[in-house]
């Protein structure tokens, strides 16, 4: 146990260095900016605006977290004995306190009278962030790409833009607070969160054998394609 703990201690430092703090930090700062902007305006805080800005902030933070699993040294870390599930979980564990602190700050920036129900909006934010992490895990699981972050962020952003348009009325996720569908929508959010957690868990382990479905043919030594 002591040996494991010793290994983990060294691992924590190593993993902490590889976490893309700049991306996470950019997402966090921009998220706080988005929520804090209406504070500069005089006048009544608007609950509808506050709700949607909080959603926007959660999306920005999720976009930052889409880069969390980027590992420039992936080809070297793949064969190490510490399982990938442990390494990725460690990254999440390192970011989790930051995320919790950030979300508290974001909620604190919203004036109290305009604040949406805390539990429900936190569920939405958690589901959004977990969805981004699950997408990153899926990208890592299905491709050989060491840094899938930009693609994952683009996919998350596109999904976030398309979902409100494409969801049928009865499955709507983005409802205002006083809407009678609020509770039902949050049951669906809980479902999204559960689904994202399952995908994350399923994509955790390093596959024993690589399938060639989504793999790019990249002969060793050649770094890019003609345009790169």
């Amino acid at each position: 146990m002591g040996a494991v703990r010793g290994v983990s201690g060294a691992l924590v430092g190593a993993v902490a260095r590889t976490v893309p703090w700049r991306a996470v930090g950019a997402g966090a700062v921009v998220g706080l900016l988005v929520v804090g902007l209406p504070r500069m305006l005089s006048g009544e805080p608007d609950p509808w605006l506050a709700l949607n800005l909080l959603r926007g902030a959660a999306l920005v933070f999720a976009l930052g977290l889409a880069f969390l699993l980027d590992d420039p040294a992936r080809e070297l870390t793949t064969p190490v004995t510490t399982p990938r599930r442990l390494r990725t979980s460690l990254r999440v564990a390192l970011v989790a306190p930051v995320a919790a602190l950030w979300w508290t700050a974001a909620l604190a920036l919203v004036p109290e009278e305009a604040r949406p129900p805390l539990g429900a909006i936190t569920l939405e934010a958690a589901a959004t962030v977990t969805l981004a992490l699950a997408a990153a895990a899926l990208a890592v699981r299905l491709t050989d790409e060491p840094e899938p972050g930009p693609s994952v962020a683009a996919a998350v952003l596109t999904t976030a833009c398309l979902t409100p348009l494409l969801l049928p009325f009865h499955w709507d996720l983005f409802v205002p607070v006083d809407d009678p569908r609020w509770d039902a929508a949050h049951q669906r959010w809980a479902g999204v969160l559960a689904g994202a957690v399952l995908v994350w868990a399923a994509c955790g382990p390093e596959p024993l054998r690589r399938r060639r479905v989504l793999r790019r043919d990249r002969p060793a030594g050649a770094l890019g394609r003609p345009g790169a």
């Binding site: 700049r22 991306a23 988005v34 926007g56 976009l63 952003l157």
Partner: peptide, 16 residues
């Protein structure tokens, strides 16, 4: 020149 800048800035521009 950072890959994470564009998606984050999209939301920021929208909010601004």
């Amino acid at each position: 020149p950072a890959v994470f800048a564009a998606p984050v800035l999209v939301i920021l521009l929208f909010a601004v």
